[in-house]
Amino acid sequence: MEYLLNLGIIFCIYSILALSLNMVVGMSGLLSLAQAAFYGIGAYATALCMTGLGLDFFSTILIGMVINAVIAYMVGKILSRFKGDYYAIVSAGLSIIVFSVLLNWKSLTNGPLGVFGIDKPSVGGFSFSSNASFFLLCLVFVAMVYVIYYAIDKSAFSRCLKAIREDEELAGSFGYSTKRFKSIIFVLSAMLSGVAGALFATYIAFIDPSTFQLKEGIFLFTIIIVGGLSSAWGSVVGAVILISLPEALRFLGLPYETAAQLQQMIYGAMLVLMMVLRPQGLFGKYRM
């Protein structure tokens, strides 16, 4: 039971990440590999503010979201001029840089040693210390992000994004300032990823930079490619499939490092296979 709850919590965290990434990649057709960076910033904001400043979990979520919004706004201003290859490479660069800052700004982040002793969230005397209660908390957050995704998907905002992903010039000629649309969705997606980071930090109680490398961003990217681009449901299904996979590998009894590399290899093969067979993903509504 505890094992399943643990798995459920991880599903939830990755569903939030996948949903927020799909707003950028699926809904807007912008190949972002930066999601792990915002995930990491959210996690570090919560970890450092809770352990260092003794702040309450829920306010640290907001702090992480604000930091992410500021960074995403600044980078997004430049990113919004581009799409396709350039978008992918700049966002990958951002991810490498954020990792390098987390690793090297030792006075703030404690460098490669990471941050220890992050408490579970509590509200009004009740602590979400059991896995069951924490799982419920995560479910609430997933539901919120899912509803946000759904609402955007039904709004004129997403219609414009979908127009931009195919023909930005045409969308512009209907009176939309396309760069602002691209920049706003990037900021929003970064903020929501921060929430996932906060949940991760408080759940694991110990974080270090190695979790938030570029390969994590590629993994998140794989989740939505497999699950389906521009689909809320696909994001969640993709997360479930790709999180379950290493759990299945665990039964093979391979050494840890071998299993980890094997996983990477399978993720890579999945990306290639999806591109050859079904580029829009299982439940996807958008073909690149």
Partner: peptide, 12 residues
């Protein structure tokens, strides 16, 4: 699509 495929191959 080629870029994403190359990302997958790179990972492999």
């Amino acid at each position: 699509i080629l870029l994403v495929a190359s990302l997958g191959l790179y990972t492999i």
